[in-house]
Amino acid sequence: MFSEWKFAAKDIAEKPDLFTSGHRACAGCASATVLRLIMKATMGPTIVTTATGCMEVASTIYPYTSWKIPWIHTAFENAAANASGIEAALKILKKKGRIPQEQVDVIAFAGDGGTYDIGIQALSGAVERGHDFLYVLYDNEAYMNTGIQRSGGTPLGASTTTSPAGTVMPGKLEPKKPITEIIVAHNIPYAATASPYYWRDLIAKARKGIEVNGPAFLHVFAPCPRGWRSDISKSIELSCLAVETCVFPLWEAINGEYQLSAPSKAIALKPERKKPVREYLQMQGRFRHLFTPKFEKVIDEIQRITDERWQRLLKKCSMALN
């Protein structure tokens, strides 16, 4: 299905950035790193569209832009519809000979708010219609651009400004929506999860998503120090811990066939490597209230849900242990 793409760290380092520095992302923002890495996976002519959100406002402010490729933003809930229109135009203009006869790749970036919540309709429609584009969800687990409000991607127990931890409420009451599984259920040819800590895996998956014929969905974990109340130097470490605790396992679904990616597969094969969620949670101020006698049980619940989802994933990957 995919051409073998071999690349060395040197190739990636030497490839000129298409998402350039000078943008206004916060210190320690993993989303900016994610965008930069994904743009390293492009090869030919590419058009990018971005939903309203952190990466849109941080990467452009008139008259400046971080984008070295053609880029368009229209609104919040329609990144996938943006891509649909671009792809449809490219297809017909090429057919009519009005643009060069070459493959132009289309990538849409949207945050968790623009994907799990307000953008899911446009995304579902575009995937169902089978447009040829890569949709990248950079998931910082809340509406960070508007000031840390909960989204469908916010995990259980996280304190946000609209799910604040109070004297009776332990932060968000609901677990994260399984967005990537929902997209896989559309019979999408390629879907995957990725983490910037495993940058090589991330770039390779972005490349696969670009190359696949039809829609592709890439769900990338993106710690946000401002919203997570975490140390700005720990974003990549958190991206590692999320995988090691199985809070955010790495996997692909190629034509609906689930398979674990190497870092998660290693844990599946040696379950003793799986770290407790506590290690991941304690590095983040958004979970601080859980480390009090009143809400401690929520940590057990997060562990239970994480384990349950991990087991379910193992079954999907035909790696269930019993």
Partner: peptide, 17 residues
């Protein structure tokens, strides 16, 4: 498309392309 919102969005980006 799946909605008018996406209809106009797709026309907009197609026109921009």
């Amino acid at each position: 498309v799946e909605s008018e919102h996406s209809a106009l969005t797709a026309c907009l980006t197609a026109a921009a392309t």
